[in-house]
Simulated scan of single mutants.
Amino acid sequence: MMISTASRIGFGAMHLPTEPAAREQATAVVRRAVELGVTLIDTAFLYGGGANERLLAEILHPYPGDLVVTTKVGVARSGPDGEWRLDGRPEVLREQVEQALRRLRVDRIELLQLHRVDPEVPLADQVGTLRDLRTEGLIGRIGLSEVTTAQLAEARTITEVASVQNRYNLLDREHEPVLEGCERAGIAFLPWRPIAAGTSGTAEAVSRVAAETGATATQVALAWLLARSPVVLPIPGTASIAHLEENLAAADLHLTAAQLAALGGHVSG
């Protein structure tokens, strides 16, 4: 999956309010994101049981030609008491993709991600189902989320993988080996929780670099991600236009080699 240099930061839609009373706020944020050049918006069936997907379609359909709305399947209310659980059974994945097509009002989902690998279903069955749906023309490209290097390698023996979405940020680099694998293979890496849940400003080096550049700690964290690898496409989420604009402005923040070196010393744990 190629990453446009003009839109290295996407938008995570998970935090958008879907209740009618907040619809105006959500609409303003989403439209502002597109206006500022965002070309990838990330959603999932898990976000409100499809409500987040419906919201995006109501706001944006018909979609701009350069916009990719990516969604995720593989989590369902199929627990004993109707609770959410991982569910990668082929019939569930197929049904969720078909429902997502209707909610998003599209004939094909350009990037469809497996939200999590279900340990109770062979990975070959889960990824193989998505491969079949792609062959049928319902999916353009296939992505994975929260996978290990071994799972990514196995999946790539079954089908081409366009993207990986794992938790990764300046202060939490548990999935560094996965990112390195994506970089070698030219696979887009979409870090979720890219800003370390507001803790970036507590790191001394982050605070120092923020002061040097006149940027916020959040912008430093995002700029570090962009400098970390050309395959990285962060997807910070927010329900605030001010925070959205702060996030996207990080694409214009260029850190020096010395600043990157200082930040590179902060590894989680």
Results as ranks from 00 to 15, higher is better:
Gly12Glu: 00
Ala13Thr: 00
Leu16Ser: 01
Pro17Met: 10
Thr18Val: 15
Thr18Gln: 09
Ala21Gly: 05
Ala22Thr: 05
Glu24Lys: 10
Glu24Ile: 06
Ala26Pro: 00
Ala26Arg: 00
Ala33Gly: 08
Val34Cys: 04
Leu36Phe: 07
Leu40Glu: 07
Leu40Gly: 03
Leu40Asp: 04
Asp42Cys: 02
Asp42Val: 00
Phe45Trp: 13
Tyr47Trp: 03
Gly49Trp: 04
Gly50His: 09
Gly50Leu: 05
Gly50Asp: 09
Asn52Ala: 04
Glu53Tyr: 08
Glu53Thr: 06
Arg54Phe: 00
Leu55Val: 02
Leu56Pro: 02
Ile59Arg: 01
Ile59Phe: 03
Tyr63Ile: 02
Pro64Val: 06
Gly65Arg: 14
Asp66Arg: 14
Asp66Ser: 15
Val69Ser: 04
Val69Arg: 05
Thr70Pro: 01
Lys72Pro: 06
Val73Trp: 05
Val73Lys: 06
Val73Tyr: 06
Gly74Ser: 05
Gly74Trp: 01
Arg77Tyr: 10
Arg77Ser: 07
Arg77Glu: 07
Ser78Pro: 06
Pro80His: 11
Asp81Arg: 14
Leu86Phe: 11
Asp87His: 10
Asp87Trp: 03
Arg89Ile: 12
Arg89Leu: 11
Glu91His: 13
Leu93Asp: 05
Glu98Arg: 15
Leu101Val: 07
Leu104Ile: 07
Ile109Cys: 12
Leu111Thr: 07
His115Thr: 03
Asp118Leu: 11
Pro119Trp: 03
Pro119His: 05
Glu120Val: 10
Leu123Ser: 05
Ala124Tyr: 02
Gly128Asn: 06
Thr129Glu: 14
Thr129Lys: 09
Leu130Asn: 01
Arg131Trp: 01
Leu133Trp: 10
Glu136Asp: 15
Glu136Leu: 14
Glu136Gln: 15
Gly137Val: 14
Gly140Met: 07
Arg141Tyr: 01
Gly143Lys: 02
Glu146Gln: 08
Glu146Leu: 01
Val147Phe: 05
Thr148Trp: 04
Thr148Ser: 15
Gln151Met: 05
Ala153Arg: 15
Ala153His: 14
Arg156Trp: 03
Arg156Asp: 00
Arg156Tyr: 02
Thr157Cys: 06
Ile158Val: 15
Ile158Thr: 10
Glu160Ile: 04
Val164His: 02
Val164Lys: 01
Asn166Phe: 00
Asn166Trp: 00
Arg167Tyr: 00
Arg167Pro: 01
Arg167Glu: 13
Tyr168His: 10
Asp172Trp: 11
Arg173Asp: 08
Glu176Pro: 07
Glu180Pro: 00
Gly181Ser: 12
Cys182Asp: 02
Glu183His: 07
Arg184Ile: 04
Ala188Pro: 01
Pro194Ser: 13
Ala196Asp: 07
Ala197Gln: 11
Thr199Arg: 10
Gly201Lys: 12
Ala203Asn: 09
Glu204Arg: 15
Ala205Ser: 15
Ala211Trp: 01
Thr213Ala: 12
Ala223Asp: 12
Ser229Met: 09
Pro230Leu: 08
Val231Pro: 00
Ile235Met: 04
Pro236Ile: 06
Pro236Arg: 07
Leu244Gln: 08
Leu244Gly: 09
Leu244Ile: 09
Ala249Ile: 10
Leu253Lys: 09
Leu255Lys: 12
Leu255His: 12
Gln259Asp: 11
Gln259Cys: 09
Leu260His: 13
Leu260Val: 09
Ala261Gln: 14
Ala262His: 12
Gly265Asn: 13
Val267Ala: 13
Gly269Tyr: 11
